[in-house]
Amino acid sequence: MTVLERLARLAVWTIGLAVCVYLMVPLFVTVAVSFSASPVFDLPPPSWSLRWYEALGSKRGFLPSLSLSVQIALISTGISLVLGTLTAIAVVKGRFPGRTAISTFVVSPLMMPGLVIGIALLQFLREIGYRDAYTGLILGHVIVTLPFIMRTVQASLSLFDFTLIDAARTLGLSYPKAVVKVLVPVLSPAYLSSGLFAFLASMDNYPISIFLTDARNKTLPIQVLEYLEVRPDPTIAAISSLLILLTIIVLVISDRLVGLRRMTDF
């Protein structure tokens, strides 16, 4: 190895590790603040306590918001899994014109301004006289979650040999049964990683939700920002730390099931 190569490798490793630390900073801050006894976000905390975790249950609005966000994220991810798989099969297997256009179209909400999608959807729903905030949120969140599923499932399907389904049918399975028995197991890693990304994207969505919520249906990010603007205290850090813990559990399970490395087939 020449000196130049050594230097380049050193630079790559240094930047890589620095990026890791940089990415983890907000998490460390959040967890540290959540165990702080001080209400004013002093870092490092003057002393430690569990008071913000104890406060979680008594703070009105947080648990309902968390539960609403989880429901919306689960339902919209579920709908997107179905719609995304069907569209991905059509795009990968079909031989009709415009397949690239369909794929670009379905993935495009990922790159579109969320606020604009939110306003457009709100005005459309108002125009047709639809007023239910809960289903409105689901309708909006399917738009955000679908691109994640579509991208990953399409990439995964492009490596799939569709003649396997014909083989299963020759062996006596009906078409739907053949799809379930052959295709779904092949797609499960893609489902796991894209489902996780879609779920987290929905949980975190602010720009679309802000236009679709009402007083009784506030998703977690909206509740949190409102709370931060009025009187911030580390209760938010406590609820976020619980979400970090939950994600760690999901990641450990995913690692056992399919391996972390496949999670990045993004």
């Binding site: 983890m24 998490l27 987290l200 975190d204 990010p221 949190v224 976020s240 970090i244 990641l251 990045t264």
Partner: peptide, 9 residues
């Protein structure tokens, strides 16, 4: 991946 679990807010 893990930082995605903490929302943007």
């Amino acid at each position: 991946i893990l930082p995605l679990s903490v929302g943007i807010v």
